[in-house]
Design a binder for these strands. Structure first.
Lengths: 174, 174
DNA sequence: TTTTTTCGTCGAATATTATTCGGAGGCTGT
DNA sequence: ACAGCCTCCGAATAATATTCGACGAAAAAA
């Protein structure tokens, strides 16, 4: 039986989630296909209670989905590029427009609006380099406010994304 | 019953995988928790045959794992930064050393060795900005060959990574 | 303090799914 | 045509998911 009274408080940021939810999130992030039964055992809950919580985590959007991590290098050796984009105009509409175009591009796999030496950083995965050129040319054509695109070809992915460091992120500020 | 004789050839890159395997990979990438039964139905296979293929895809490393996509912004609003790192020395050992240190850093969530205006691009997720400074200071201390680190603070993730565009990547070169 | 309400858990029952197994059919090379 | 190999299928079994009513703790109201 779980008595929450004697547990230390959680970071306010975690909202309505308790320690058990967070443990579940961490486990599910690293093993998205774990069975409900095994997850229940890992957090010391009955299968039914665990199932209910898992449902809630998904319904309330704490977990946005599950994905298989495909070994894409082995599958097809794609050309991966990271583009840093500077805008000539910083009008909000211009930004939105570019974000939309990138969102529509299947081969743009991740995109960030950033501060610093450029305005956007976009990760691409393409079948070949000529395809990457097509894509960037098209972007520039669609979005004349793009001032500059600087391309970094990925020589090697030295660390693949396998989830966020939830434990480290939830520590209280000192 | 599947007769492969009349199917068009696959890209050689896909190795020993056939069309069915690729469809499974695509589905599993976008829905990592799909049941074997549903997957079988989606690719027109019996549950047993599908199960056998799934096992093979994992055993042979085409799928490296499954992860839950946690809504990290909602969970804790981390400070996300993308750092571009230039090395003063391009000796292989220096590169390996930095890769190792980054690999050991939980808060470095993805890292790329790239060509272009810098040598590395690293994505960080930290509890707060001061923590990011600690991490980069530590990196510079451990790796004196780092010539320069330029930080881009992520203002907004306009497109989250949800998998590679397998369909686009497997098209044959024109 | 006592009562009431709420919330989350449990265990059992049922529904669904995973996994294993033997057999059948296609494909290839002899 | 035949043998060997591969992959499929369907049925049987094992395991898991999901639902449900009841119980106990904590919090709110009396």
């Amino acid at each position: 039986m779980h008595t929450l009274r004697d547990e230390p408080p959680l970071p306010a940021r975690a909202g309505s989630l308790d320690r058990l939810d967070l443990r579940m999130l961490r486990i599910l992030q690293s093993d998205g296909r774990i069975t409900n039964k095994a997850l229940a055992a890992a957090v010391n809950l009955s299968a039914s209670a665990c199932h209910q919580r898992l449902q809630r985590l998904m319904d309330q959007g704490w977990i946005e989905g599950f994905m298989g991590r495909v070994n894409i290098e082995r599958l097809c050796e794609p050309v991966q590029c990271i583009a840093t984009i500077c805008m000539a105009s910083h009008a909000p509409d211009t930004f939105r427009q570019l974000e939309q175009h990138i969102d529509d591009l299947a081969e743009a796999t991740a995109a960030y609006t950033v501060s610093g030496g450029c305005d956007f950083i976009v990760h691409f995965a393409c079948a070949r380099m000529s395809r990457y050129m097509e894509l960037t040319d098209e972007l520039i054509r669609l979005c004349p406010e793009i001032g500059n695109i600087s391309t970094h070809v990925v020589l090697k992915q030295s660390k693949a994304f396998t989830g966020y460091p939830i434990a480290q992120l939830l520590v209280e500020p000192a």
